[in-house]
């Protein structure tokens, strides 16, 4: 499979209620690497294994939630091409100048039909993962915090997820991996989409309020590391929403938990590879509980209601 368009999720800017508390938590409990601050006071982080300059940006605000979610595209020609396709689709785009985010090139920003701000960009400084590009050693997992391998995907909540899916499929060449149908058997309650060969790069749930964030997810390599993450969370009195358990949808193992401002995050492992020729999987409304939480086989109170 040749990936030539949208490559992967690249960054999420998250609003926090107390910046210093959050910087300490993302550093010491999540085990992310602090990558500096900009003139606006925003704090930047990457995982140890990510090569680009940052994947998480924290902004002090009076309310929690996500400002925008960015995808890296192959190169500037791709960026220009995708912007033309967005405009042709009737989407209004905005260019954010290079350098607005540290070490990042020009970004194309637009709003999804669900109200979320999405960005595309082609350039972000390769700072490496510390192992080098010649004869690299393995980065042995040691030191403080959960230390996930990468920021992997997000789940967003908003009203018109059908128009969202059309935009991602037709304009940005994403493919549908899994979906949950409502009782009418026609309407999607939720969809999982990928721009690559992952089980999901973005997912969305139908919800009455626009521009809501359910979670930003970080990948771990093993189920053992998911359990280790849960131990680190409890030891640090992190608020756990659900898990450790497994999702029926994507079949990944998971913990949902909250950052110090109530933004839900996920640490997960596994899931399967999805290629564009593969048939999407459908979950019916009566089995949504097992789709979300495979062992409990029921939803908890917070899954459909607690968002920021």
């Amino acid at each position: 499979m040749a990936m030539t368009g949208v490559l992967r999720p690249g960054h999420a800017q998250i609003r926090v209620l107390d910046l210093e508390e959050s910087v300490a938590w993302y550093t010491n409990v999540m085990g992310l690497v602090p990558m500096g601050r900009d003139v606006q006071g925003r704090a930047y982080f990457k995982t140890r294994q990510e090569r680009d300059h940052h994947s998480i940006i924290l902004r002090q605000a009076d309310r929690a939630g996500m400002d925008f979610f960015g995808f890296k595209v192959l190169d500037n020609a791709t960026l220009n091409h995708l912007e033309k396709k967005l405009v042709a689709h009737g989407v209004r785009t905005e260019r954010i100048p290079a350098g607005d985010l540290l070490e990042t090139g020009e970004r194309v920003r637009f709003n999804l039909p669900t109200g979320h701000a999405i960005e595309l960009y082609a350039e972000k400084k390769d700072v490496g993962n510390g192992m080098g590009y010649v004869n690299p050693d393995v980065d042995v997992l040691e030191g403080k915090g959960i230390a996930p391998t990468r920021m992997d995907h997000c789940l967003i909540y908003g009203p018109d997820i059908d128009a969202n899916r059309e935009l991602f499929e037709k304009v940005l060449d994403f493919t549908l991996v899994e979906r949950v149908k409502l009782e009418d058997g026609t309407t999607d309650l939720a969809t999982w989409l990928t721009c690559s060969a992952k089980a999901h790069d973005i997912a969305m749930v139908r919800h009455n309020e626009p521009d809501k964030m359910h979670h930003v997810s970080f990948r771990l390599d093993t189920w053992e590391q998911v359990l280790r993450a849960a131990d680190i969370m409890s030891k640090n009195r992190t608020s756990i929403d659900f898990g450790p358990t497994r999702h029926g949808i994507t079949q990944g193992t998971t913990i949902y938990f909250f950052d110090p401002s109530g933004n839900r995050l996920e640490t997960f492992c596994g899931g399967y590879d999805h290629y564009p020729d593969m048939h999407p999987i459908t979950w019916t409304w009566d089995e949504v509980g097992a789709g979300i939480y495979y062992h409990a086989r029921k939803l908890n109170d917070t899954f459909l209601t607690v968002v920021t």
């Binding site: 209620l17 309310r63 929690a64 939630g65 608020s239 929403d241 909250f258 950052d259 110090p260 401002s261 109530g262 933004n263 839900r264 109170d301 917070t302 209601t305 607690v306 968002v307 920021t308």
Partner: peptide, 12 residues
């Protein structure tokens, strides 16, 4: 009392 994020963010 309904339980949500426990961190002052979700309001439930």
């Amino acid at each position: 009392i309904p339980v949500g994020c426990r961190q002052g963010g979700c309001g439930v």
